[in-house]
Structures are given as structure tokens and as C-alpha cells.
Amino acid sequence: MLSREQQGLNWLLQWFDPRGRSIGGLAFILNRITALGLVLYLYLHLYYLRQLTMGPQVWNAFIDSAENSPWIGIGELFVIAGGLIHGLNGLRIALNSFNIAVPYQKQLFYGLFTLALIGIAFFAVHMFGA
């Protein structure tokens, strides 16, 4: 009920500061962080795809360097993590918005977050294992 001018940067702090937040608030923070991460990934993705327009040599060179860099793999795992957490939490919020399972939103978050963690572990093993 305060205007942006009155709030200053307080609103930003309230969006991301986990202190004193309940499970619902922590899920809200995670959703914002993963969303920002996915948006950042989308722009990086488009930026590198641009190299397709520069001919096959440029693209092949980029693919070679990407395959040799461990950072790309770690980055991809972050994308997978972000996608799973954001997507599954989105499912929870969508269900809740039809007033389904609102009294169980905490349990729903625990369950779906566990599912996301299992998924992340699966992909981590698949990508980096043995």
C-alpha cells in the first residue's frame, strides 16, 4: 500500500529476502530466482544460435569448444534444475488457482520439490556419471 517511490528498493528486498518467510514464501522466492535464471538462459541460447547464420565453420567451431568445456554441462544442469523446480512449482500454483489442494500447498510443495530434486539427481548422474 506504499508507492514505488515510498518503497525505494524495499520491494526488491521483500521479493528475495528469505528471513522470516514460511514455506509458501520460500517457494515464491525460488520461483522468482528460477524464472530469472531461465530468462537469462533463453537470451544466451538465442545469442549463441545467432552463430548459425554465420556459416557452418563458425557453428562447428562453437560446438567443438562447447563439448570440451565443463561449464556448458554445469550450465545445462542448472537449466534442467531451473526448469524442473519452476515447472513443477508452477503446476502447484496452477492447481491452487483452481482452488485445488490449497490447504495442502505446503505438502504439495514438499512433494513436488522432492520430485524436482530426484529429477536433477537423475540428470546429473546421466550427464556426469561414470
Binding site: S22, I23, G24, G25, A27, F28, S97, Q105
Partner: peptide, 9 residues
């Protein structure tokens, strides 16, 4: 509303 559920908490 962005479903933080802090109000009910």
C-alpha cells in the same frame, strides 16, 4: 496475487 501464501501464514 503471486501465491506466496504469507498472508495466511
Amino acid at each position: 496475487c503471486h501465491s506466496a501464501y504469507e498472508c495466511s501464514a
